[in-house]
């Protein structure tokens, strides 16, 4: 008599899908900084304009140069070269202020040239080489008045038209 042996095969394959890895991931973090720099207000006022004064030249003059040097004492700032005469009535520009707090400032004057135009006309003269009466970085004291002078040079060409010439320039005080 034969025996039959029925092998019983039950295969259970579990379907395993891991949840998306995020469940196992750690949060990551990074630090940042918030910053602000506070400064107290300070204003600068103009005390006087830059004035090259009166220049005399005759019809045959070959022209000349006028220099206002703010490092020289007031009253002796003007120097003239060439075939022109100065009436010695010019002066450097002067600006002043009084800061609330002692601080370091940086004075910025024009680096290049500016143009003056004749009033009532179109002729121009070029102002160049702006200079300060000292270093452009200085420390100013709280509640104490301070000022600084600005000078420059102009070249007067032969045959320059008679009249008053005017131009604008900007001076900036940066702090800190």
């Amino acid at each position: 008599m034969s025996r039959t042996h029925l092998p019983t095969l039950l295969a259970i394959i579990a379907s395993v899908s891991l949840g998306a890895a995020p469940a196992l991931a750690q949060p990551v973090r990074e630090d940042g900084k918030a910053t602000v720099t506070m400064v107290s207000p300070m204003s600068i006022v103009k005390i006087r304009d830059l004035d090259f004064g009166t220049i005399y030249m005759d019809a045959t003059s070959t022209g000349g140069t006028v220099v206002i040097d703010p490092t020289r004492p007031e009253g002796s700032e003007i120097s003239v070269t060439g075939a022109i005469l100065s009436g010695n009535d010019g002066h450097s520009a002067k600006f002043g202020g009084s800061p609330e707090r002692t601080k370091k400032i940086k004075i910025r004057i024009p680096k290049g040239t500016i143009t003056m135009t004749r009033l009532g006309g179109t002729e121009t003269l070029v102002v160049r080489n702006f200079t300060l009466d000292g270093p452009d970085q200085r420390t100013v004291t709280a509640s104490t008045y301070f000022d600084f002078r600005v000078g420059a040079s102009i070249d007067i060409p032969a045959g320059a038209a008679e009249g008053a010439y005017e131009g604008q320039f900007e001076v900036q005080v940066q702090y800190p």
Partner: peptide
């Protein structure tokens, strides 16, 4: 059988929060 490998998450600072200079 399934598995999902994710690249690690990273965060880098490019710039702080800077309010500049204020008067």
């Amino acid at each position: 059988a399934r598995v999902r490998i994710l690249e690690p998450l990273a965060i880098f600072k490019v710039d702080d929060l800077d309010f500049g200079t204020v008067v």
